[in-house]
Amino acid sequence: MAPKLVKLALRRVLREVRYVRPVPAGKATGLVRDVYRQLERDFGMLAPPVALHSPSPPVLAATWLMLRESLVAAGETSRADREVVASLVSRANSCPYCVEVHGMALDSLGRSSVASAIAAGEAVPDPLAGALSAAARAELTAVAFTFHYLNRVVTVFLGPSPLPSSVPDSARSRAKAVLGRFLRPVEDASPGLSLDLLPPGSRDFSWAAGNPVVAGAFSRASAAFGSVGISPGVRDVVLRNLSTWDGMSPGLSRSWVDAVDDPVARLALVVAKAPYQVDDALVAGAGLGDRELIELVGWASFVAAAHCVSLTSTRKAA
């Protein structure tokens, strides 16, 4: 657990979140308070990529379930292997914030050579390519799903680094080392402790077969995202476009989305396929409040993550 002063400093990073105002730790109640407590206990800090979801308590809880039960909870795979998957996905999605966070975590776990290779863009063996049990494969696939999700959310709401902008360049290396130590696994991160935060869901994920905790976490998260107030028209636009998407970036131009008239659907589609193209004008045009914006971005990121994992599974099977 981080010392009190460091914890307070990390909480203040929430002030740098764009477009929405997260619930301050001291004002959290109900489900938000329960998630915050678990997050600081098991992840070591009030991580902004999770806490920024707090304007929508069910989406906050869903995000924490996915992160905790994939990356944080003890299981058949090591935390280092899971961090490698998180780093690889984040690098593929060009999310510098997450690449930096999980590079720090790898350094603290004694995997600096892997972290250096990832930072340099070098080839790293795919941890999913080896002979794994069904439960272990589900754990690593869950990490990949979670970071396809988080990379999109982070790109929209956070800057390029997990360190506060006030940290001078001369102090950043030391700050990274300190933060990396807080990301080490905790001793009592038993699987499944987050599941009671949300009611059970009914959706089955085939890749999670053989790992009931992971399956339960993602089924609950899916139910939470499925219940948010996204209009049928917006859902149809995004799901129809994803059904034929090969997972490749559409590039720098946003002309591919110009034909979408509804500004909310346009924002959701850009989040799903090209979150780096989200800008102030696109967000302002959607005209959403904090909770509605979190739920739209969260839902679009979740369905895009599910599609990316499906594409990967299909390619491996082929």
Rank of each mutant, 00 (worst) to 15 (best):
K27C: 11
G30I: 05
V32M: 07
R33W: 02
D34L: 08
D34F: 02
D34S: 14
V35A: 06
V35F: 04
Y36M: 10
R37A: 13
L39P: 05
L39E: 13
L39Q: 15
E40M: 10
R41E: 13
D42S: 12
D42I: 01
G44D: 13
G44L: 12
M45E: 15
M45H: 13
M45Q: 15
M45A: 15
L46P: 14
L46R: 14
A47G: 07
A47H: 15
A47S: 12
P48C: 14
P48M: 14
P48A: 14
P49G: 08
V50Q: 07
A51W: 05
A51Y: 05
L52I: 12
H53A: 15
H53C: 14
S54E: 00
P55R: 06
P55Y: 02
S56D: 09
S56T: 04
P57Y: 05
P57C: 08
P58L: 04
V59Q: 04
V59Y: 01
V59G: 06
V59D: 00
L60M: 07
A61Y: 03
A61W: 01
A61G: 05
A62W: 00
T63I: 00
W64S: 02
W64C: 05
W64V: 01
W64I: 03
W64D: 01
L65M: 11
L65C: 10
L65N: 04
M66I: 02
M66W: 03
L67W: 09
R68Q: 11
E69L: 07
E69V: 09
S70F: 02
S70T: 11
A73D: 10
A74I: 02
A74K: 15
G75A: 08
G75I: 00
S78L: 11
S78Y: 01
D81M: 09
D81W: 06
D81R: 14
R82V: 00
R82T: 01
E83P: 01
E83D: 13
V84G: 02
V84H: 02
A86G: 08
S87F: 03
L88V: 04
L88G: 01
L88I: 09
L88E: 00
V89P: 07
S90P: 06
S90H: 03
R91F: 08
R91G: 06
R91S: 09
R91N: 05
A92R: 11
A92K: 07
A92F: 02
N93Y: 06
N93K: 09
C95I: 04
C98A: 14
V99C: 08
E100V: 12
V101F: 10
H102E: 09
G103F: 06
G103K: 05
M104E: 11
A105K: 02
D107S: 04
D107Q: 03
S108C: 12
S108Y: 11
L109W: 09
L109I: 14
